[in-house]
Amino acid sequence: MVVLELNEVTMRFGGLTAVNRVNLLLNENEILGLIGPNGAGKTTIFNMITGIYTPSAGKILFQGKEINGLKSYLLTRKGIARTFQNIRLFGELTVLDNVKIGGHVRSKGNLFGALTRLPAMAEERRIAEKARSFLAFMGLAAKEQELARNLSYGEQRRLEIARAMASDPTLLLLDEPAAGMNPQETMALMEMIRRIRDKGLTILLVEHDMKLVMGICDRVAVLDYGEKIADGTPKEIQSNQRVIAAYLGEAG
């Protein structure tokens, strides 16, 4: 089953075409890596899927339904969760509260509930239990009462993933999750992403770290100058001449 489909998606900023007629398929329970040199259009595609930009042309379909230009909170409701390249945690709140907020769309409770306490208390207990299970899953159980801003960098990255997972997504979008991590942390992260996939999630990964991408992705799509130049298994990509040229060209 196709979870996400990009159909001839184009994004223009004034005269500049940042993304040009890109097609992309993401199957259920697949890990897709999106790579490409700087300025290739990875982040633009990420932003279109997460509702920050509306495509100039083409369609983005989630579970067969068009989601072009939907506000990000609506996408989350539909089952798309994301992390941020430059970590955006709720710094002054506890680790636990961060994850509880992640569960916002999968819980109930309004002003009336807050004031009438009793029905809300059972719901609150459920929210807390769920949040703790995600923290445990990401290895952050011991830190639940710490303020998010006091965590180490790697922990903050993991907390972002835990928070995103708390919204019970079908599709998880990870924007450079390994940025700033040391090799051991990256290894642990790869293991974790695999375990998330094993829970039944579909994952789209934008990443620079080739070791990570080649190590865990089922399929890799390569962008260059706003166009998709390759799409295949890590092995196929590694031997693709256009990809090698694009990366060498960038390096040179």
């Binding site: 909170y73 969760a81 945690l89 709720f90 509260d97 916002h104 409770g109 309004n110 509930g113």
Partner: peptide
Amino acid sequence: NSRLGRAFLAIREDEIAAEAMGV
């Protein structure tokens, strides 16, 4: 201490992230 209050706090802390969490 409710879902409502956490949504308020999330907006204060980071509105973009709050929206991304479905708020």
